[in-house]
Structure formats: C-alpha cells, structure tokens
Design a protein around this nucleic acid. Structure first.
Length: 595
RNA sequence: GCCGAAGUAGUUCAGUGGUAGAACGCUUUCUUGGUAAGAAAGAGGCCAUGGGUUCAAUUCCCAUCUUCGGCUCCA
C-alpha cells in the first residue's frame, strides 16, 4: 500500500466525519501531502445548533451562531473518523456525466467550480464514495476503510487557507493530519517533529544568546547579542576575503536615498508596496532603501567604462528595509530589516555565460564551506509580463542553463517564475522542519541598465549597454544564520563558534595557570573564556555542553605540574591530556578545514 | 494582510473577580571541587498596552501591539 493512497483516503475519511458532525459544510479540496493530508472546509452555513459545542465565547456568538472550529475540536473529528474506519466501508469509484455530477454536487459551490474545469474535453468525471460522502476524485484510493489502522493517524493543526490559493478568494478552514501505516511510524514521526522543534533557530537563538526581539523595538527587527554579533562578524569576514579573491570590489552605500532615485530605478512604480513611507527632508522626500542596486549603478555611471574594464563586480553587505506583512515574519528567517551579501556584476553580453558560471561555482563553494550539501535549485524562466526582447531572454536563459549543465547540477525549471526584468537561479535550503528557504539568488537584469542609461565603449568605439547580474549568495545574513543555526543545532563548527574554548580551573589555586592558558590562546587568535565562577567542575562542563562550546580545557594540579591541559571536545568527552602547542596546532587545522 | 491560538519573573510555565507562585537562571555566602546539576539565603513581576463593566480587574468584555501554526507574498 502506498502511503500517498492511504493519506488521500484518510483525507476522504476526515471529510466524511466532518460531513456527519457538521451537516451543511461546503467542501473544498483534500489531497495527500508530504507526511500527511489536509482537507479544506467552508463552515459558513453550518449552524452552531448542529454541532455539539463545549465552549462558546462571545465572539463566536456574535458571528451569528456560525460554526467556528478550533484545535480543541480535532479530537472529536478523530473519534468520528475511527468510528467510520471500524465500519469497514468500501471506497466506490464511478464514472459519471457532467450533468449528473452537477446534480450530485448542486449544494457544493466549490465542487461545481471544479466540475466546470474537469469536464473540459472529457465526457466522464470520476467520483469516489465512502459511506455517505461523495467526492470528485480521480483516485486512487484504498479498497476499504478497514485497511486503515485506527491509531496510525492524527489530526495535527487547523488553519485558514484561501480557496485555490488565491488571496482574493474566500478563506476556508483547512485541517491538517498526518497518516502512517502503523502506530509505531506515527509515533516516530511525532517524536521527530518534537526533535526538530529543539533545533528551531528561534529557541536556540535565545538559549545561546545570539539574538533577541523586543516588542518596544518592533516586529521583525532583531537585535544581535554579543555572541550572535560575533558569529555574524566571522561570516562577514569570510565574505570579504572570498569576494576579494573572486575579483569583487567592495562598496558602501547609505540607508536612505532621494525618492527620485527610486523613481528612476522603477522601485517606486513596481516595488512600492514593499517600501516604507517616504521621509520628508526639507522639501524633498527620501526612502529607506529596499535594495542596493541603484547605488552600485551610480558608481558604475560615475565614469566612462571601456569593454576592457568589464566585468565589473561591486559587492556590498547591504542593509535593506522591506515592508513584510505581519503574518509572514518568522524569527530571523523573515524580517523587516536585513543585510544582504549583495553584489552586482556588469558585463558584456559575450561575458554573461562565463560570469554566471563563476557565480554559481562561488555560491556552491561558499555553501559547501558552511556545510550545506542538501538544497534545491530552481531555474526561473520568462514570465508572461516582461521587458526586453525574446532574443535576449533566450540568450540569458541559455547562459544560466549552460552554467548549471557545465557544473552537472540537478535543477528544476520554474516555468514563468522569472522576474519581469530577467531570468534567475534560486537555491533553497531547508530548515529543521523541512520548510525550504530561499537563500542564494542569481538574477539577470535587462531593465536597470536601460533605465539608468548605462553604457560601455566597445572595441569599435561604440556605446553599448552592459548586462547586469544581481546576486546574493548567502542571501541575507539574518536568514542564512537562521538556517545555519538549525542545520548545526547551534553546535557551530570551530571556525564559526562565537566562543571556541572555555578554560576551567579546578580550584582557586589553579586560576593563575588557567588565566595564562586563556591569554595564550587568545594571543593565538582563539576566542577563549576562563570560567572561574563559583561552581563545581561538573556543573561548568554541563553548562559548556549546553552552550555548545567546541572545546573545554580543564586544568588542576596535575596539568600545572606537567605543563599541559586536559582537553574535552564537544559531544565527544574527555580526549586526554595535551600540551598547549599541540592543541593549538590541532585547533588551527580544524579551523582551516572549516569542520 | 487573512484564518485560528496565545501573551504572568531573564527563560519555561502554574494560578486567581479582593494587586501573585514553581522550576531553571541570576546575586551573595558556605563549599575548593577532576569531566553533564554541591548547599543555603536573597533579589527579581504596573500579570503586553489602552479603554470599558464592577465597590474591587492580572482574571470578564472591547481595541491595539507582539508571538505561534497555516494561507498568500518573499532574501
């Protein structure tokens, strides 16, 4: 039995239960998804009288006695589902005409909408019936509900979801469930979810004192605490070094700029809903920057460029501000002010392939250095509305494909998913709960060079328009660190650890020696702290493990006598006595390998 | 923004129509310790904010803000 079939059938069983419990429900759709299933319901015409309600607050009463489900109602639906399963009902498939379908679903407006589309070019529509519940469905399904083990599924959450995923449509109530072949597998799944929640960057962020939020500061505006700021600083240092090696030049630009700049760039016209309101300065209006590109273009345009100067690569750790709808904010992964590892490459059309190839190679190297090997790559192509000629679109899309193919990278094509100004490559990294986050983006732009009248002088002394590539390889510091925290569960590799070593003197008389060791390690460039507070050695070690300190050094009488330290490695335990120089050598090679 | 849930100590959470408690953390003292929790004492809260109902509101009602789970949108 395929899990997908089981889950799809569970979704029908849930709908059957809902129909029995809340007559009058209108049904949306109910597919199987990764790990489970859902079904969308419209309860607007279900009167509260029909449902057995334990609690009713005033808000619900005001809503004209309409049913308003919440998480507390799920056990009752589960119970009903088990009753249905025990009845050993068959899933019956039928092929019917459109006219007959319209009759059966005459009280189901969402189904009628689907019938209209399904019937196009077909004479028959397939339906499935289980118990008294009939649904439009192409299947497949189980033969009977008896194939379902009544304790291997669970309804897990309830949420709003727009009909057909369109914001302008009505919001339906979606119930999510998870379903497995056995009770054991279900429990394993639920345990895994719990484990994943332990890796949540929002939880670890405050436990490890990396960053914080404050109501009075504002939503979506993280404050970096000392250890988080250090982590960020290390990553920034890495970027400066890598990009310099890759032939980039660094720029710095300001956080606000005259509205006129954003009018020229087109952001005022096309991106306004993501920008904050203008700030009045004397008689002029200024905007907080949502992107850094116009500044980089200004630098490019500050003098006449020859074909010999290209490609020009301008990089900036650009802090940008974007209005994000309140409901989408998510820890560090989705914020309202963030710093992109942004860069713009200006090149000739002939150089485009080579530049894209270099950029993707660099992205892969950098993601690899941070330990990311598992991600999804998308190539987004020409959308319906676009600027530029088909010729140049084809050329750019081909160049992107060429780069991916040359590097033998697997990718999916997101047809029509490109920006209006050019095609792009996106790389998404998954978080602890499997939610994908877009980090890397490499976009070709035919729009801005035109808007800012950019040019270079070619071999024949003629003015030509350069091609622009926008690229953020880690994406944004905030989001990247969020994913990094979840990826490592906060146990950062040595080179990234904000604090790399703790030195623990056993007693007061060992403090002087411990301080000497600490000083020498700091001198050697390692982020080291002495822990001489009043606590037992066991307690300090425990704290060190909780704080995910990579190395803990213990010193006492024996070590002083031998001129050594006792080394404990994170999650490995005591790895024995060592001299300081040999430890430093080990640490240096570990930092070097970025492991 | 939309649907649903929730905001009590630094953190995780109990609790109550008569202005509050636990655990961990923190501070101090005792203890001077050998690889994941030594002991005692103490400090710490306008119970998110603003209104309303009430003799009395942290508790009931409303609004706002923030957070969480989804939807839509994105780095």
């Amino acid at each position: 039995m395929k899990l997908e079939t089981l889950r799809h059938s569970l979704s029908h069983i849930m709908a059957t239960a809902v129909q029995e419990l809340y007559p009058g429900t209108k049904f949306g759709i109910g597919p199987a998804i990764a790990d489970g299933f859902y079904y969308d319901f419209d309860f607007d015409e279900v009167k509260i009288i029909n449902a057995k309600r334990k609690t009713q607050n005033a808000k619900q009463q005001r809503k004209n006695q309409n049913l308003n489900l919440n998480i507390n109602d799920l056990p009752e639906i589960e119970k009903k589902m088990r009753e249905i399963i025990k009845q050993e009902l068959a899933f019956k498939k039928k092929q019917i005409s459109k006219a007959k379908a319209n009759k059966i679903f005459k009280n189901q407006p969402y189904k009628l909408e689907l019938i209209e589309e399904l019937a196009k070019g077909k004479s028959k529509i397939s339906i499935y019936q289980v118990g008294n519940f009939i649904d439009l469905c192409k299947g497949p399904h189980l033969k009977s509900t008896k194939e379902v083990s009544p304790d291997s599924f669970k309804l897990i959450k309830i949420a709003g979801a727009y009909w057909r995923g369109q914001e302008r449509n009505k919001m339906l109530t979606r119930i999510y469930g998870t379903g497995w072949a056995t009770k054991n597998e279900l429990n394993k799944y639920l345990k895994n979810i719990e484990k994943a929640e332990q890796r949540d960057h929002r939880v670890l962020g405050s436990k490890l004192e990396l960053f914080m939020f404050d109501d009075e500061v504002g939503a979506g505006l993280p404050i970096w605490m000392p250890k988080g700021a250090m982590l960020r600083h290390i990553i920034e240092g890495y970027l400066y070094e890598q990009l310099y090696k890759a032939g980039y030049q660094w720029l710095t630009s300001f956080h606000i700029a005259n509205l006129n700049l954003w009018k020229t760039s087109g952001h005022w016209g096309f991106y306004r809903e993501n920008m904050y309101a203008p700030i009045k300065v004397d008689e002029e209006e200024y905007m907080l920057k949502p992107m850094s590109c116009p500044f980089h273009i200004k630098v490019y345009n500050s003098k006449i460029r020859s074909y010999k100067d290209l490609p020009i690569r301008f990089a900036e750790l650009g802090t940008v501000y974007r209005y994000e709808k309140s409901g989408v904010l998510h820890g560090l992964a989705r914020v309202r002010g963030f710093t992109q590892d942004d860069a713009h490459i200006f090149c000739t059309p002939e150089q485009l392939s080579e530049e894209l190839l270099r950029t993707i190679k660099l992205a892969m190297k950098m993601l690899g250095d941070f330990g990311f090997k598992d991600y999804q790559i998308y190539l987004s192509t020409q959308p319906e509305k676009y600027i530029g000629t088909d010729k140049i679109w084809n050329k750019a899309t081909k160049a992107l494909k060429y780069a991916l193919d040359t590097l033998k990278i697997n990718y999916e094509v997101d047809k029509g998913g490109g920006a209006f100004y050019g095609p792009k490559i996106d790389i998404k990294i998954k978080d602890s709960l499997g939610r994908p986050w877009q980090c890397t983006t490499i976009q070709v732009d035919f729009n801005l060079p035109q808007r800012f009248k950019m040019s270079y002088i070619d071999e024949k002394g003629k003015k030509r328009e350069p091609i622009m590539i926008h690229r953020a390889l880690l994406g944004a510091m905030e989001r990247f660190i969020a994913v990094l925290i979840e990826h490592t569960a906060g146990a950062f590799p040595l080179w990234l650890s904000p604090i790399q070593l703790w030195v623990l003197p056993i007693g007061k008389k060992h403090e002087k020696y411990a301080q000497k060791i600490t000083d020498e390690l700091q001198e050697a460039g390692f982020r080291t702290e002495i822990k001489n507070e009043n606590a037992t050695i066991s307690k300090k070690i425990r704290n060190g493990e909780i704080q995910k300190i990579p190395y803990i050094l213990v010193v006492g009488d024996k070590e002083i006598k031998n001129k050594t330290i006792r080394v404990r490695q994170r999650s490995k335990g005591d790895i024995g006595e060592s001299s300081l120089p040999s430890l430093v050598k080990k640490l240096k090679s570990e930092v070097e390998k970025k492991k």
